[in-house]
Design a protein around this nucleic acid. Structure first.
Length: 795
DNA sequence: CAACCTCGAGTTCA
DNA sequence: CTCGAGGTTG
């Protein structure tokens, strides 16, 4: 009897607190005084303490639970899709036009909403109780962050049908199963308050509200998350939409979500057609600064669900919605200094050191000035006030100088004439934009960059060998060239660590204990060991040969199959290969012509580096390795061709696969092909040349050997002649794997979208390439389509 | 030789 | 991501 009235009282308290909390947090119109709220809370807490059997998980006292040990990754029942983006008004007009066309209607009604700059979260309710909160993750799988999301006061732990008059609290039916989607963000007030306190207490401040919110949500300890006072705004329903069958539109669902206790942005509304959307965009844009939280644009969704269903999806994004982003934010700041960086190739890059400034959500302190031309164009000087923006919302860029704010005593900036790292002359060759340090590997900066490049993920992929480590290795003389890496011993690494710690002036407490240090050193040795058997194409790329990127390295490695063949290859042969012209060929040749480089390669091989041959030569290679290209290459290298012109070369190449065949046929064998007698004679004079003759024959037989190894044709693969571009992240396989499988079917996998692209495979979070594909009308596949296709073809 | 497609190189911040 | 420039193609 008494127990029953106690539990009734507890239920009543919980309900009153839930309602009060809802009006305070969500409606922003408190129904009871703070003191009264606190009193109810205390009473409930006391009852729960004295009668633990009264405790239920959705009690308002239970927002902060125990810390978790790690974040679990869980699959979304319904994937969380991304939205297509629009930046210009025209794109919105086009979006509306397409929708009207597809639906065959005159006019479309849109739900207009804010695009929060926070992080997307899915909330799962069972029988009205919050049971799970997941981050968006990759859209397919997210992290379980229920423990931190529970601490957000505007996330209802329990759903109730909140009538909108402030006295009513009817507990009418709530859906059995409902997934609510929305955005968690940190309001400016919370952000400001948190940082004020952090400053006062000497703790680290948060960089921006977005990252602060993301960081808070991913905390293991919910108490930490609670301190950041986050907010949640609902904008849609995932699973459980069937609960709203009586509601025919998105805007109705938003109202209904509000009635269930969720906060929905007040700015949300309805617009008719593109004009209505653009009005909304401008209105929100103008009021953006007054909003209590950050947004990075607005979203338009076709309002009617029947129309949404009719429109469907394109490659993981709904066709019925688009995000209209605000332009990259621009800010003013001051150039405090202009430094230069020395790159791996010696490129001297000026960098503006800026007075820290918030631009589009992050604090920017550096901005590249690219090169001397750019500096001259802008006339940036130390002390100038400049406008900075984040290009493509990522990389900071100096847009312009505010001349009127320039201090009196400034001078135009000039690049240093000597390298700041080694003192060698800085040279800028004719017609080049970049200035380079001439010190080569004598320059410590270049040596460091060369090592960093060598170890980087896309090259030899030596984990644990990052910038800091390389710095120490070079400074303390443990590594002069990349080959030295393969001579490092455990003892040397520990010695290095000690010296580095000593230099850093580390106190004994901050120095890692001996055991940890040795574990670290073992790991590095292990990583270096693994890299010994890295593929040939990676090794070629890792060597840092100018103009030798991943693509060139790949095609060279596949064509030749061995490092030995490449390092001794005749430039004439290189020049005959596809995608290698005079610049690339001479860069490769001059790299291998330097005794020092050959020594390093010898040392690598002597220390157990065994590059693995990988892949087969491309079919394009075989088609290209003919007499015409051989003679073309010879001509480019200055061979005396005399009267042998391009037309004659073409004619000969058509009929004769090799020099051998030409010699067998003799001079009149050529004239019989319609080649002028002087041209045929010139070729034979060339072949008799003491230098060019043997060289041509040698390259000719090398070409024959490569041709031999190359596949005869893309033997009619199902994708022969198709060019495919991959973008975004795949879930079932990596992009590289997907590329390899497409290539196996005869496709050419390219890096950028153009008119010639046959189709684009767009994974999750696809960016500009997807946009470009849509612009050019290139077909787009999603990952599922690709997998189906591969399964069909792969057998 | 001009237009076009690609690739290489450099860069920022959390 | 963006710029510049190398290479290919019509």
């Amino acid at each position: 009897m008494e127990n029953e009235s106690l539990s009734q009282r507890a239920a009543e308290l919980r309900a009153r607190i839930h309602v009060a909390n809802h009006y305070y947090e969500v409606v922003n119109d408190p129904v009871i005084p703070d003191a009264e709220y606190d009193r109810l809370m205390r009473e409930l807490e006391r009852m729960e303490r004295e009668h633990p059997e009264l405790l239920v998980s959705d009690s308002p006292t239970q927002r902060v639970g125990a810390p978790v040990s790690k974040l679990e990754t869980i699959s979304h029942d319904v994937p969380m899709l991304s939205l297509a983006n629009a930046f210009a008004d025209e794109e919105v007009v086009e979006f509306d036009r397409r929708i009207r066309e597809l639906l065959g209607v005159e006019e479309v009604r849109y739900s207009t909403e804010l695009k929060f700059d926070g992080l997307a979260i899915s909330l799962l309710y069972r029988d009205g109780k919050l049971v799970r909160a997941l981050t968006r993750g990759d859209g397919e799988r997210g992290e379980d962050v229920t423990h931190t999301v529970r601490t957000i006061k505007s996330v209802p732990l329990l759903l109730m049908k909140m009538s909108r008059d402030r006295h009513g609290r009817s507990f009418s039916l709530v859906p059995e199963n409902l997934e609510v989607r929305g955005e968690v963000c940190m309001p400016h007030a919370s952000f400001y308050e948190f940082n004020q306190r952090a400053l006062a207490e000497g703790r680290k401040t948060l960089a921006n509200p977005r990252n602060a919110a993301a960081g808070a949500i991913r905390q293991l300890d919910p108490a930490e998350a609670k301190k950041r006072k986050l907010a949640f705004f609902a904008y849609g329903v995932g699973q459980g939409l069937e609960n709203f069958t009586l509601l025919p539109s998105q805007s109705d669902v938003l109202v209904s979500l509000q009635e269930l206790g969720f906060q929905v942005a007040a700015e949300t509304g309805i617009a008719i057609g593109a004009d209505g959307c653009l009005d909304f965009y401008r209105k929100v844009g103008n009021g953006r600064d007054q909003l209590p939280f950050d947004i990075d644009g607005v979203v338009y969704k076709v309002d009617r669900f029947d129309q949404q269903r009719a429109l469907g999806f394109v490659s993981r994004a709904p066709r019925w919605a688009i995000a209209h982003k605000f332009p990259a934010q621009e800010e003013m700041t001051v150039v405090e200094a202009i430094d230069v960086q020395v790159g791996r190739t010696g490129a001297i890059t000026p960098v503006a050191r800026l007075k820290p400034v918030q631009v589009a959500g992050v604090v920017v302190t550096n901005a590249t000035l690219h090169n001397a031309d750019q500096i001259a164009r802008l006339d940036v000087r130390v002390g100038d006030s400049v406008i900075v923006r984040r290009a493509g919302d990522v990389i900071p860029e100096v847009l312009s100088v505010l001349i009127e704010r320039r201090p009196a005593d400034t001078a135009p900036y000039a690049l240093p004439s000597v390298c700041p790292a080694c003192g060698s002359a800085v040279v800028r060759s004719e017609g080049e934009v970049v200035a380079r340090c001439s010190g080569g590997l004598f320059c410590p900066a270049q040596r460091k960059q060369a090592l960093i490049h060598f170890a980087s993920r896309r090259a030899m992929d030596i984990e644990g060998l990052g910038e800091r480590m390389v710095e120490d290795l070079v400074d303390f003389g443990f590594a002069h060239s990349v080959a030295d890496l393969y001579r490092l011993s455990l003892a040397q690494l520990l010695d290095l660590k000690q010296q580095a710690d000593a230099r850093a002036g580390a106190t004994p407490e901050t120095v890692k204990a001996g055991k940890i240090a040795s574990k670290w050193a073992e790991n590095l040795i292990e990583a270096i060991e693994r890299s010994r058997r890295q593929s040939l194409e990676r090794l070629l790329f890792a060597l840092g040969i100018l103009q030798m990127g991943e693509e060139t390295a790949k095609s060279l490695a596949r064509a030749f199959g061995s490092l030995d063949a490449i390092r001794h290859a005749d430039p004439m042969l290189l020049l005959a290969l596809p995608d290698i012209g005079p610049k690339v060929a001479s860069s490769i040749t001059s790299f291998f012509a330097q005794p020092h480089n050959q020594e390093v390669i010898d040392a690598l091989l002597a220390n157990g580096v065994e590059p693995q041959a990988s892949g087969v030569p491309s079919a394009a290679l075989a088609a290209r390795l003919d007499l015409g290209h051989l003679l073309g290459a010879a001509k480019a290298l200055g061979a005396p061709l005399g009267r042998l012109g391009d037309t004659s070369i073409g004619r000969i190449a058509q009929a004769r696969p090799s020099l051998e065949a030409v010699q067998a046929a003799g001079e009149h064998g050529l004239t019989a092909l319609g080649v002028p007698a002087e041209a045929a004679a010139a070729l034979f004079v060339l072949l008799a040349h003491p230098h060019w003759g043997p060289r041509l024959r040698a390259v000719d037989s090398a070409m024959a050997a490569l041709r031999e190894a190359a596949p005869q044709q893309a033997a009619g693969g199902p994708l022969a002649g198709k060019t495919v571009v991959l973008t975004g992240a795949m879930t079932a396989m990596t992009r590289d794997e997907a590329g390899a499988r497409l290539e196996a079917l005869g496709a050419k996998v390219a890096g950028s979208v153009s008119k010639k692209t046959s189709f684009v495979v767009a994974g999750e979070a696809a960016g500009s390439k997807l946009v470009k594909a849509q612009e050019l009308g290139v077909p787009v596949w999603d990952e599922a389509q690709l997998l189906t296709f591969l399964a069909e073809q792969g057998g």
